[in-house]
Every structure is written in C-alpha cells, then in structure tokens.
Design a protein around this nucleic acid. Sequence first.
DNA 1: TTTAGCACTCTTTATCTACGAGTGCTAATA
DNA 2: TATTAGCACTCGTAGATAAAGAGTGCTAAA
Lengths: 347, 347
Amino acid sequence: MITLTERQSLILKAIVRDYTEGGNPVGSKSLVQELPTKVSSATIRNEMARLEDLGLIVKTHLSSGRMPSIKGYRYYVDHILKPEKVDNKDLKVIQHSLGGEFHKIDEIVAQSADILSQLTSYTTFTLRPELKDSRLSGFRLVPLGNHQVMAILVTNNGDVENQTFTIPNDITGDELEPVVRFIDDQLVGLPLQDVFRQLNQEIPLKLAKYLRDPDGFVDIFGRVLSKAASERFYVGGKLNLFNYTDQQSPKELQSLYSLLDQTDSLASVIGSPGQHIQVRIGNEITNDLLKNYSLITATYDVDQHGQGVIALLGPTAMPYSRMIGLMGAFQRELAGKLLDYYRYFDE
Amino acid sequence: MITLTERQSLILKAIVRDYTEGGNPVGSKSLVQELPTKVSSATIRNEMARLEDLGLIVKTHLSSGRMPSIKGYRYYVDHILKPEKVDNKDLKVIQHSLGGEFHKIDEIVAQSADILSQLTSYTTFTLRPELKDSRLSGFRLVPLGNHQVMAILVTNNGDVENQTFTIPNDITGDELEPVVRFIDDQLVGLPLQDVFRQLNQEIPLKLAKYLRDPDGFVDIFGRVLSKAASERFYVGGKLNLFNYTDQQSPKELQSLYSLLDQTDSLASVIGSPGQHIQVRIGNEITNDLLKNYSLITATYDVDQHGQGVIALLGPTAMPYSRMIGLMGAFQRELAGKLLDYYRYFDE
DNA sequence: TTTAGCACTCTTTATCTACGAGTGCTAATA
DNA sequence: TATTAGCACTCGTAGATAAAGAGTGCTAAA
C-alpha cells in the first residue's frame, strides 16, 4: 500500500493534469509555479525521484520530464481525483437529447452512445438493460401476399422484433391462425430463456399437428427470438478514434476500427462492471490492442428491469475527473429515461 | 485529339503498369527490358519527353522517373486498356456469395457491396434498382398491445418496410380495420410517387371520417413510405481505406470516413452513370476529397425493374484492367440474381 | 530539509556530405 | 532521319556532425 505525503500527492496531481492537457512530459521547473507552497525546482526533483521509485511516474529517457505511469494514473484515480460536478451545459445537452419520443428501448440506448461520444470526443459503448427478465408477450404472423409472411415478436418490455420470410406457397391469415394461437397458449408469458428451451424440445413435435413443415417455422421463430434476446453494444464516436490514437500507426488504428465492429470482442473487453463506475487503465484492460488506452465503464440500474452498461474509451491521458462526473450524470439520466419508458408500458 | 505511335502507346502502358504495381516513378532504364522490341534507354527517354509534352506523364522533380498524370490514366483507360477476363476463382466467389437465400432486395444489394470490396480490397458502393416503378401493393396495421402498433408496407417488388409506433390509448384490430380498408381502396396499386403526392393532399381530409387524429397517422404512414422509397447506398470495405489512402494525412482519412457515412453526399458524388461502365479519375470526380482517387461506376439493368448502380473507389493507381473486368462480371451476376428474385414475386 | 549550482544526458533541429537514380543534351552512328 | 553512347547536371535519400535546449542527478552549502 502506497502512501504519499501531501506534497507528493500535489505533485503527482499536477503532473497528471499538465501531461493530460499538454501531452508532453512535465519538468520540475514548470511545476514550481503550480504548487500552492513555494518550493524550488530542486526540491520538486527530489520528490519526483521518490515518486519514480514508487513507480508512479516515468521518464521517456534519462533526462526527460516525467509522465504518469499506469500505476500513477491508478493512484491518481483511486486516491486523488475528485469527480467533477457535471457542467450545466452538458447536463442540458444530455437531458435534451434524451427528451424526445422514442419507439424502442434500443433507440434510446443507441442515441445515448452518440450523445456521450459527442460530449467527450471519445468513443463510447452502450448496452441496454439485460434481458433476463424479458418475457414473451405477443406473437403475430402477418401474411403479406407474394409468398411473404412477417413474424412479429413482442416482449413485456415493449421490445418489438420482426423478420420477413418467404414461403413456398401463398397462404392466408386463416391458415396461420392455429399456429399463432398455439404459440399464444403455450409460450406467451414465459421468459425468453424458457421459450428458447422449449423451442428446441417439445414445440416442434406439438406443432406437427398444425403444420406440414414445423422445422421451417421453428427456424424462423428462433431467428426473431434471437434478435429480441441478443445483447449488443452500440458504438458512438467511431470517428473520434482519429482524435486520440497514435497518428503514427495506421495499422493499429485499423485494428481498433475492426475491433469496434465485432460485438462479441467488445463484450468480452467491456465485460460487466462490478462497481458502479470502474476505470481501467492501459494494460489493466484485457485486450492488447487497448493497452495504451483507458476504459471507463459504468452500470446503470433500471430497478427491476435489470442493469445496463455505458462505457467510454479514450487515451490513458484523459481528464478523468470530468469524465467520471459526466458518466455519473449520464448514468442517472439514462436510467431515469428508461424508467419512464418502462413505466409507460407497465401501466 | 491525341494520337500515339505504337511504341509510345506501349511505353505509356508499361509506365502505368509498373507504377501501379510498384508505386514508384518509373525510369527509362527499367523500361528497356519491358518493351517487345529492343531499344536503348535514350530512345525511351526521347519518347518519354514527348509523352510528357502531351501531358500524359509527369515527373515529381526534374530528374525523377515518370508517373502517369490524370490525363495519362484517362488515355490509358480510353484507348489502351483491355478489360481483363474475370478470374475464374473470383467468378466462383461472386456466384457463391450471391447464391444463398435472401429475404429482401436490400440484403442482396448490401451483400454485393461486401463481396466486391473483398475481391478488390477497395471500397465499394451499391444502389438497388431504382424504385420509380415501385407500387404500393399492401398495407397493414398490426396492434401489438401495450400502446403499440406496427405499420407494414409492401411493394409490388416484394419490398417490406415496417415501423412501430406508440399510440396514446390501446386499440384493437377492429378499430383500425376501416383505415386499412380505406388505404387499400384508395392507394394500393399506385406508384409510390403518387402515394406520396396524395398523402400530402386529399388523404388527410378523407381520413378524418375514420380517425380522430389523421395527422398522426399520416405522419406514421409517411415515415414507412419514405423508408420504402428511399434510395440508399450500401458501402462495403470501409476499412480498406487504410490500404490505399495516403498514410501521412490522418485528417484526410477521417474526412473520407465521414463522407462514407453521408448517404446524400455519396449520391451526389457517384451520380447516375450514363455509360455502362464509367471510369472517373482524380479531379474528374466532383468532390475535392477524392481528387487523388479513382471511381469506377457501373449500372446494371434488371429489365423493366429499372437500373441499379455499383461503384468502386480506389487509388488512381489501380489495376484498371482487372477492376473493369470484375465490375463487368459483377454487373451480370447481380442483375441475374435480382431478376430471379423479381421473377419469384411476379409469378 | 531545502536550495543553488553545475556537469551530464538526451532529443531536436539544422547543415553538410556522399551516393544513386534519372534526366536532357550533344555528337556520333546506322 | 532515327537511334544510341556518353556525360554533365539535378534532386531526393541517408548518414554524420554539431549546436541548442530542456531536464535531470548530485554535491555542498544554507
């Protein structure tokens, strides 16, 4: 356990701030003016040597200024930083952007990623509240003519998914009636997980009574069901990558870009944050591509509807204090908006 | 009108080829070995001086090798190049990728952009056949419970669009019945353009009989209609930008990236190609961002269903011969696939 | 414990040099 | 007249050298 003196702490804080703002290693002389008590640059050098011994700051070469190490950022985030109160203008932006009419949870969540990336100039990820409490609340088959039928699935959260499929012969609504009724009787009201299970077991057999081709139907139904049950991160501010990545290595930029398109990799990188707001810095992130970046993740609670996730990817040298404040505010606003949404459907 | 001697033409061709393959300006000595008839480097230098006078090739500095100018590429494409017969393996890839089952035209067209970008390592755009002959062939309103209704619109081409919306009070299918019937009577069978027109004129008045809030309905209907009638380019191989853009200017790369996300800008850049396969090089493209790139555009005919567009963006130094061959093959395959698709719904 | 002073390190930038690839021109050749 | 050999000249690249500047660590004095 590292304990710093008051002055060491102030110096570390100043180094973090200066390096974050200027991007250049920070020298002892420039720090003289930034400490509340007047000390000479030599004193600061001595303190810096100690901070370096502790592994909190590093030099790029023998006679360069210092910059924070991963460990240094860690200490700063854990012990020094105070979350900045969110800027009033930023709060207005959030509230205004979330204020509109949305038809789907996913729209709200996707929009959130965009707002947050706009406010931060970084890249953001949002995940809707988990679906473990989602239940099937309705199923429709709508014949569209021209060999086409649309399957529509509704959950108790108001989520709607649909999938059009093509069938060999035209069919009327009447012929589909018994199938829909069967689904209504057997499956409506069940959690999606249970529907999945039954779909692979008893359903195909039972359906054989009504349909010549139950397998085809089961396939379609499974597809819509997967859509409704799939958890998928929305990504905002992809283009912001250009603002904070190392401009010298386009290869890396390209890899990052393609990482952002892989939902499953994203999920494993972001994980499900245990704490309320978690900061992972550099190699603390379980993905080598991101070892020079920082990831702030946060959950948001929507009461009995479960938790969602918001996340922020930026450079290790980011203004943590402002970002954490912002994440906190966003957490609250988004949770509030979703609660309103759910409440509307629970009436 | 420029006319080149046989030998000049061969030299220009060799310069284009070498520069495209190697990326470096081409000198007279290296060309000696590439011409069918043995001539000295001095002769080639003389010829090159003439080609330069004509503006077909340029030097980067006084004593550098030569590279083709825009005008040089233009001449090469117009008079020298012979489209390469498409590679058999590539053809297999195309046919296989388009061979599967698709539920929507847009899926086929979107998939096409991906295949083409994969085959070329460049960036591609595809546009579905124009919709001017599209007619409204069906409209449904499906109450989903929980204040939600889904509007579904079907066209005679088998295109299906839908939009879920929220209404103040729950409603049953019966109440919506007259509205749907009214739409069926008045609008089904009309070209989408006409539907649009009527929607803004007589429809709101007539609907007032059946609905308290015709404006709200008209809004929803308009939204689904726009979705069905909107022409939108699919983009493939965005990440390939990294392979062929100037690695030195991330700013430019960023601008290009955001250009690819702007459907309307894309449309104006690509336009609607008059010829079957059109090559635009460098500043011939009406967008300054693309002045160092080449754009190959092509239409594909789907008989009475209109024309679509495929396009390819790459460096000015691209293997035109192979690319044009590829575009030709793709044109045919895609048109064929879509014809099959339409035929299925026309039965 | 703090500080002034100083030698030392390392990066950055500019200047110079040598090298090589390629050109244009001239004069000789077929 | 068209082609070619020869040569001086240009320009970009890479490496070497030097000077400036920022910053450090250490020593010795306050």
